[in-house]
Amino acid sequence: GKELVLALYDYQEKSPREVTMKKGDILTLLNSTNKDWWKVEVKATANDKTYERQGFVPAAYVKKL
């Protein structure tokens, strides 16, 4: 199945390749080969529509579930 990670801290994206997350968010882990930056998929809701974004977050800010 898919691997999930838990956001340990809030993170505000600093570039278009990154994604914003809030502490407590559960994210889908896409790639953890880089030890510093993990690629995740974030589900977000805006205007009653759910959309998914993929991007990088600092590996130290998340932990595998």
Rank of each mutant, 00 (worst) to 15 (best):
F56N: 03
T20G: 07
V5D: 00
D36F: 15
Q12G: 06
K35I: 10
E18N: 05
L65R: 03
A59Q: 05
L27W: 04
W38P: 00
E41W: 07
N34D: 14
W37I: 02
V19K: 01
E41M: 13
D25N: 05
K35Q: 09
A46W: 14
G24S: 02
P58C: 06
K23C: 07
Y11W: 10
Q12A: 10
G1P: 11
L4M: 11
L65I: 14
G55M: 05
D25V: 04
P16L: 08
G55W: 04
Q54K: 08
K39R: 11
I26S: 02
R17H: 12
V62E: 02
G1Q: 13
T33S: 14
G24Y: 05
Y51W: 11
K39P: 00
S32T: 09
V5Y: 07
G1C: 15
K23V: 06
W37D: 00
G24V: 01
G1F: 13
T45G: 10
K63P: 02
W38K: 01
T33M: 11
A44Y: 15
S32N: 08
L29D: 01
W37A: 02
K2D: 08
S32Y: 07
W37S: 01
D36A: 11
V57L: 02
N34Q: 08
R17V: 09
L4N: 05
Q12K: 12
D25I: 03
G55V: 04
W37M: 04
V19R: 00
L6S: 04
K35G: 08
W37E: 03
E3Y: 12
N47I: 09
Y51L: 10
A44P: 07
A46T: 12
K2V: 12
K39E: 13
A44M: 15
E13S: 15
T33R: 11
M21C: 06
L27R: 00
V62M: 06
D48S: 11
V40F: 03
D10R: 03
G1D: 11
D25W: 11
K43R: 14
D36M: 13
V19Y: 03
A7S: 05
L65P: 02
R17I: 11
V40C: 02
T33D: 15
L6H: 04
G24A: 02
A44W: 15
I26L: 08
P16D: 10
L29F: 02
Q54D: 05
S32I: 05
K35F: 08
A59Y: 03
D48P: 08
K23E: 06
E52K: 15
K2H: 13
K63H: 09
L8A: 03
N34H: 11
L4T: 07
A59E: 03
L29G: 00
N31I: 07
G24T: 01
Y51V: 12
K23Y: 04
K23M: 07
T45E: 11
K23R: 10
K49Y: 12
D48I: 06
E41F: 06
Q54N: 07
D10I: 02
K14G: 07
L27A: 07
P58K: 04
L65D: 02
T45N: 12
D48W: 06
E3S: 11
T33G: 08
D48R: 08
G1L: 12
Y9P: 00
K49H: 11
A60N: 13
I26Q: 04
R17N: 13
R53L: 07
N47Q: 10
L29S: 00
K23F: 04
Q12C: 13
P58T: 01
V42F: 08
R53S: 05
